[in-house]
Nucleic acid binder design. Sequence first.
DNA 1: TACAATGTTTTAAG
DNA 2: CCTTAAAACATTGT
Length: 280
Amino acid sequence: MPELAEVEFFRKEWDPGLDHVVAAVAVHERSRVFRQCDSASLRKNMAGARFIASEAHGKKLLFRFRHERKGLLLWLGLHLGMTGKLGRASAEHKAKKHDHLVLYLNEFRQGGAPDSGGCALVFSDPRQFGRIEFATGHEAPPWWQGLPPPILSSNFTKERMEGFLTRRRRTSIKAVLLMQDAFPGLGNWMADEILWRAGIHPARPAGELSVAERKTLFRAVRFVCRTAINTVGRDFRDPPPGWLFHQRWKKGGICPRTGEPLRYDQVAGRTSCWSPARQR
DNA sequence: TACAATGTTTTAAG
DNA sequence: CCTTAAAACATTGT
């Protein structure tokens, strides 16, 4: 599922655990999601740490913990891959087959609400394309440094985008929109939504876009991200009516603007959905 | 059965 | 060095 809006939704799924302390950790040690992570260190250091904050950057998630007794800051990085999810479960939850990481939380320590009897934060991912990273220390770990400007930040400028399009001038615009070092958080459905809105064929070389097309594209990138964050990202509700989103996965989908059948082609190794009459 | 699935990385080839 | 395509990863659902 996860592109930036879904990632933002899943980030908030763990919010009820804020200010709680990790009582126990369960991991599926052998899972591929730990391929870049010292899971033994995670298990050892996370117990007793308080969940203090979280943030999302594109498709990357960071969960911050503080181990007060050890005077240690803990950095838990998650990537949801293709099928990753975050959720909550009861304090008695037994990790199921695809629950690769479960953090069991204590109730509030000092005079917390009486209802907070502890719960479990669960990271699950059937295909295991997701990734868990873990670090301790006062500095942000390397994998949380040097990230590109978020699409909805003021540092994400049209000039910056155009510079990237020029560097990748021979590559299809669809493939370029999927590059996380320039468009952090865009994925297959959002890229198609953007190109449909901008009236640009997904296979067009990035360097061939006219001045007007680049302007339209820039606005479409920001509009689709902003709107997706405010719908999918807020509570997983669908994007507004009239979006390609509602047509793209059904067989016999039609273009919301032209009423013509949508077409599906492999572009950049991904199934791309586009409207022949609108996008050239 | 065979193929596709909202992702990324590595390998191979041009 | 750069670009592009393909394969790989692991599992489920049609």
